[in-house]
Design a binder for these strands. Structure first.
Lengths: 230, 230
DNA sequence: GGGCAACCTTGACATGAGTCAACTTCGGAG
DNA sequence: CTCCGAAGTTGACTCATGTCAAGGTTGCCC
């Protein structure tokens, strides 16, 4: 845990970057940059939100637990993402825990400072409203996924979301997470993810470790009802 | 559909009310107030977002459809709520359709005007960031619900959310929607909602039409894992 | 007040998905 | 290179939930 005030930390952030060096300096005044090893927990469900987090590198999973037994991944966040904004904005406890799924660098901005800066800086509150709007739509898609699609359809939609937008061209992609984590994000047991992959071989999905080939995008899209409009 | 510029429309709105009459006037300049009969559709998934909507009275359901067959309720919105803010803010098509579930009054604010007003008025962008934060947490709760709880547990949690916060006192509540709609909101078939109600009779739930008595709140809380921290 | 049409409920059944246990594969450490 | 543990796969089974069909209830409109 070491102080780090270099502007470059936020300059290329897609949300905060465009706000300019003055706001960066203010945000970083007493911010802390933290190295988080894979598997480490950043905070737990129920704790008070004392920091806004920005992923500088690596990947963070937001996990929800149901009293000891079951655990699920609500969403992954990657380099450039701000996460748990709502708990910070509303001054409320976290609804989820956060865990690094690979070695990560996380910037922690004091919640109190962030809130007062939002009060002062119009541009910052606009950027946050935009970011929250994007998050909102991510969550809506997940809810639609869970309520309207079967497990294999959810996997198909997930694979399509990883593929480039090449209008139906065959694609070769690499799974960004361990299969167990992907299963939890998609709301199924790891065993069922296996079976879903096997079922999708019928639609041109070939997988070998983390490498996955999608040889027939149109049939995959048809299978999972891909009207989902990004 | 008739022009309506009286300030009183927004004065008592929990989100926009505190912003003051100047902003109200600006928002209402070319806004339209619409009477929507129960069952009518306000807009459909995929359409461009041309208006921000405010529920003045009644209730609106956001519905998602999966090619003709299945349909689900993502969320209900009530008097005072702003909805589909993200589509307006990001200038993107709706991810869902909206339908009135009872006779409603809806205020429609031009999307373009709303966006430019957010650029001008710091207080408005702050209010929107706050509202989006609340929505975000609503959606997170729903995702946790769907991924971690069984159908009867989801019903139990829903009933508890309708009860006053009287620390375990027996409560008498009224279901705000038709059972079919509640079932879709909770992610189950109407038939399963019936069975879930019967199962909850073991935990002190007595229902008669829309009237529901919760006679044993603590056991209900235990049943549905009520660590959910509001 | 009668009748019709939603809506809700109930039972029987089909099926998707979770669980458990065994086996296989992969990757890292020595 | 080999070993070991974690991760992934597979099959058998169970259970929850959806589906279909029938019957019952409610409430509204004439």
């Amino acid at each position: 845990m070491n102080q780090n005030k270099q502007q470059s930390t936020l300059e290329d952030n897609p949300v905060l970057g465009p706000l300019g060096p003055d706001i960066h300096d203010a945000l970083l005044a007493d911010a802390v940059q933290l190295s988080v090893p894979s598997g480490a927990t950043l905070f737990r469900q129920g704790e008070e939100a004392r920091f806004l987090r920005v992923v500088l590198s690596g990947r963070i999973a937001l996990m929800a637990r149901s009293e000891e037994d079951a655990e699920t991944v609500v969403e992954f966040f990657h380099a450039g993402d701000l996460f748990i904004i709502p708990a910070v904005v509303l001054h409320l406890p976290y609804l989820m825990s956060a865990r690094a799924v690979e070695d990560s660098q996380v910037l922690m901005i004091q919640a109190e400072r962030f809130r007062s800066l939002m009060e002062q800086e119009h541009a910052l509150s606009l950027a946050i409203a935009n970011e929250l709007s994007r998050h909102w739509r991510m969550l809506i898609r997940q809810i639609k996924d869970l309520k309207l699609r079967s497990a294999p359809q959810r996997l198909a939609a997930y694979l399509l979301s990883l593929a480039p937008d090449d209008a139906g061209q065959p694609a070769s992609i690499e799974l960004p997470e361990k299969r167990r984590m992907i299963a939890r994000r998609l709301g199924m047991a790891p065993e069922n993810l296996s079976r879903a992959f096997r079922q999708l071989s019928e639609y041109g999905v070939r997988s070998n470790g983390r490498q996955v080939q999608l040889t027939d995008i149109p049939s995959l899209q048809a299978f999972c009802a891909y009207d989902d409009l990004v």
